[in-house]
Simulated scan of single mutants.
Amino acid sequence: MSHFVVPNHIVVGKGVLNEAAPLLKEMGRKAFIVTGRHIAVSDMMKKLTALLDEEGR
């Protein structure tokens, strides 16, 4: 059996990655990112992974 817990935070908007950084600490120790090919190679993904690295995720 598998059990998944989905966070109840959905944050959207311009510049949201910086604003969402404090929430990352509350969401756990690891991130599971699901995306498509275009987003995977985007600047946004680079920013997100850098933020996660900074937070130790």
Rank of each mutant, 00 (worst) to 15 (best):
residue 4 F to A: 13
residue 34 V to M: 08
residue 2 S to H: 14
residue 30 K to G: 05
residue 35 T to E: 03
residue 55 E to I: 02
residue 14 K to A: 14
residue 8 N to V: 02
residue 49 T to E: 06
residue 28 G to R: 01
residue 41 V to E: 15
residue 7 P to K: 01
residue 33 I to W: 01
residue 39 I to R: 08
residue 29 R to Y: 01
residue 23 L to N: 02
residue 37 R to F: 09
residue 57 R to M: 15
residue 9 H to Y: 08
residue 26 E to Y: 05
residue 43 D to P: 03
residue 11 V to E: 09
residue 52 L to V: 02
residue 17 L to I: 10
residue 43 D to I: 00
residue 17 L to A: 05
residue 42 S to Y: 04
residue 15 G to C: 07
residue 29 R to E: 15
residue 1 M to F: 11
residue 34 V to P: 01
residue 18 N to C: 00
residue 1 M to E: 13
residue 14 K to N: 12
residue 20 A to S: 13
residue 14 K to S: 15
residue 36 G to H: 05
residue 2 S to C: 11
residue 13 G to T: 08
residue 12 V to M: 05
residue 18 N to T: 07
residue 29 R to K: 12
residue 38 H to C: 04
residue 14 K to W: 06
residue 48 L to A: 12
residue 8 N to D: 10
residue 28 G to Q: 07
residue 49 T to I: 06
residue 44 M to C: 07
residue 48 L to G: 05
residue 31 A to C: 06
residue 36 G to Q: 03
residue 13 G to E: 05
residue 29 R to N: 09
residue 23 L to F: 12
residue 34 V to D: 04
residue 31 A to I: 08
residue 1 M to G: 14
residue 46 K to H: 11
residue 19 E to T: 10
residue 47 K to R: 13
residue 52 L to F: 05
residue 51 L to I: 08
residue 30 K to N: 10
residue 9 H to A: 12
residue 18 N to E: 14
